[in-house]
Write a protein that binds this DNA or RNA. Structure first.
Length: 315
DNA sequence: TGCCAGGCGGGGT
DNA sequence: ACCCCGCATGGC
């Protein structure tokens, strides 16, 4: 097991607006990256350990490959990943009028969905295809455990997620062991694409190019692409609407048959983020239960469930 | 036991 | 432009 090299400790700039470190750290996360206090980000060849004190957020930066360079750039990436500059004021003001997300400005204020790399977003999104929330995150858990690299930072065991070449080296058999089922072939093809075009795996890649390249892969469609854009580019104009959300929209907005149109006109440029928050407030429960929750007005997260906000405690 | 999920593609009409 | 089915796997 390699030991990352400590490079330095930095204070992060004050968030512009509402920012809740714990909510931001815990949402859709695993125990090896968030433990309730410390948040670990793996950014290329760097590992950043983020904590909160009275002075604000601090970041301790480690190098995986021993090199020391571009520290300012690493801190810029941290800012982007955490959404420290993301102003959700308008999102909250729409949410207050929304039949599903009206509790968000109060209950989940300051939660920013962490950005992840396009490649990692692809893994997440493909695992969500045609499976329940729990099954999808179990697949992802298996992939990281089987193909990621374990390292120890500050006494905490953490995981460096597999790169495209790691997945190709492990091959389709390891993916089958990760129980991803028929998604294995798609993941292999995506790994080949990202290995061939590493420029796709940056946050500078354009939305249009990412869309076009991903669409060329068999097994990747509109839902997967849109979710990737939300999770990697903070691009919310095109909401990832799956069967689950479609039903909820039809019900909440009386919009059967024109779900996407109605949703977009309500949420505008925040559509994609609203889609993701819907999974958070309803704890990503299977459709029948989610509908019941909505009808009964139970639209706040339940801390007792295995859910987007509590995943890190259970997996 | 079947059936069906935060999809997708192929083949039918 | 639709409609319908199969596809790995796991949960009920």
């Amino acid at each position: 097991m390699d030991k990352p090299v400590f490079l330095g400790e930095y204070t992060l700039p004050k968030p512009r607006v509402d920012f809740d470190f714990k909510l931001t750290g815990m949402v859709y996360n695993f125990s090896w990256w968030f433990n309730g206090n410390k948040l670990i980000l793996v950014l290329g060849d760097y590992i950043v350990v983020i904590g909160e004190s009275r002075e604000g957020l601090n970041a301790r930066v480690y190098s995986i490959n021993g090199r020391r360079k571009d520290l300012d750039e690493v801190l810029k990436l941290v800012e982007y990943v955490l959404g420290l500059n993301e102003d959700l004021t308008e999102f909250y003001s729409i949410a207050l009028k929304d039949p599903i997300l009206n509790r968000v400005p109060l209950k989940l204020r300051g939660l920013h969905v962490r950005a992840t790399s396009p490649w990692n977003a692809v893994l997440i999104s493909v695992c969500q295809q045609n499976a329940s929330f729990k099954q999808g995150w179990r697949m992802l858990y298996n992939i990281y455990k089987l193909m990621g690299r374990e390292v120890v930072v500050e006494g905490t065991r953490t995981i460096i997620p597999p790169k495209p070449l790691d997945v190709l080296e492990h091959g389709v058999n390891a993916l089958t062991r990760a129980r991803v089922g028929y998604r294995a072939k798609t993941i292999i093809e995506l790994a080949k694409l990202f290995a061939r075009k590493p420029e796709l795996n940056t946050w500078e890649v354009s939305v249009g190019e990412l869309e076009e390249e991903l669409l060329s892969v068999k097994g990747v469609g509109s839902y997967t692409i849109r979710l990737v854009l939300v999770l990697s580019k903070r691009y919310y104009e095109k909401p990832p609407i799956d069967r689950w959300l479609k039903k909820l929209i039809a019900l909440a907005y009386k919009a059967e048959g024109r779900e996407e149109e109605v949703y977009k006109s309500f949420w505008g440029k925040w559509s994609g983020l609203a889609a993701l928050f819907t999974t958070i407030v309803l704890d990503a429960e299977p459709l029948t239960k989610a509908i019941k929750r909505l009808v009964e007005g139970r639209i706040e997260p339940d801390p007792n469930l295995v859910s987007p906000l509590t995943l890190w405690k259970h997996l």
